[in-house]
Amino acid sequence: MKIPPEITYRNVDKSDAIDTLVHEKIAKLEHICNYINSCHIAIEKIHERPRSGSPYRVRIDLTVPPGHELAAEKNPGEGIQYQPLDAVIRETFDAMRQQLAKLTQLQRASEQANRYEEAQENTAFVTKLFREDGYGFLKTLDGREIYFHHNSVLHHDFDRLEIGTGVHFSQEEGEEGPQASTVKIVDKPGVRAGKSSETLIEPPLDWQE
């Protein structure tokens, strides 16, 4: 956590047991999301003998990058009458944990989708090869044709290229339009991209050997 947790008590005697419980619960939140920016916890006693619910109010406020603000609160009048403070704290942290877990899952799913889109954009297959002239063309997975020059092929691997070789590449604007740079051989269509990888590079739907 970038900023140490801020815990405030109002009309409540701070005890070692309550302080330990709160810090244990904070640690569990950090286990779910290890990039929390800030955490503020307010623990209050509102009523001595409320007509219903607990006399305690507990509120948790979190900030999570890039700009999310989460809040969970347990108020007097909710739950079991005279519910002890530790139980109110647990319920409030449980509510926050559910919110934080949902947000983290959404963020991870978004990151995976972005990485997949980047991989789709930067993966292609050699479709035309003019070896004597030192250039060729790639076909991306979304059907675009990209020119490349032998100087753009990494590790001096231009002579290893064949029709159908799978590559990763970066795109830049050339004098006559988009062209591929930093072309790196991956593998033939449908073959594993290296011994340590479990990801298969799938050829375009209209691909034919």
Rank of each mutant, 00 (worst) to 15 (best):
G53A: 07
Q83R: 11
N75E: 10
I163W: 09
V88M: 11
P55H: 07
W207I: 03
V88G: 04
G166S: 06
P4V: 07
R90V: 12
H155L: 02
E173R: 11
R10W: 08
L70Q: 09
Q83V: 00
E162C: 09
A42Q: 10
N75K: 15
L85C: 11
D61I: 10
Y82K: 11
F93H: 07
W207M: 07
I36S: 05
Q99F: 01
K74W: 05
Y116K: 12
W207G: 06
G194D: 06
T8V: 14
D187G: 14
Q107R: 10
S170Y: 09
T92G: 02
N34Q: 06
D13K: 08
I46K: 08
R131L: 03
E176N: 13
L70A: 08
I185E: 01
E73W: 01
V58E: 09
C33S: 13
I201M: 12
A42F: 12
K102S: 13
H150V: 08
G67V: 14
E198G: 05
V167R: 03
L205A: 15
G190C: 12
Q83K: 15
I43E: 02
Q81F: 02
A193G: 14
L141A: 03
K2M: 11
F93G: 06
Y56N: 02
T140C: 04
S110H: 13
I3S: 10
R144H: 15
W207N: 12
W207S: 07
R160P: 01
A180D: 02
Y56Q: 01
R49P: 01
E162N: 09
P76Y: 09
Q107V: 02
R49Q: 14
Y82V: 02
G77S: 02
L138T: 01
E24M: 03
Q81G: 03
G77A: 06
E91T: 04
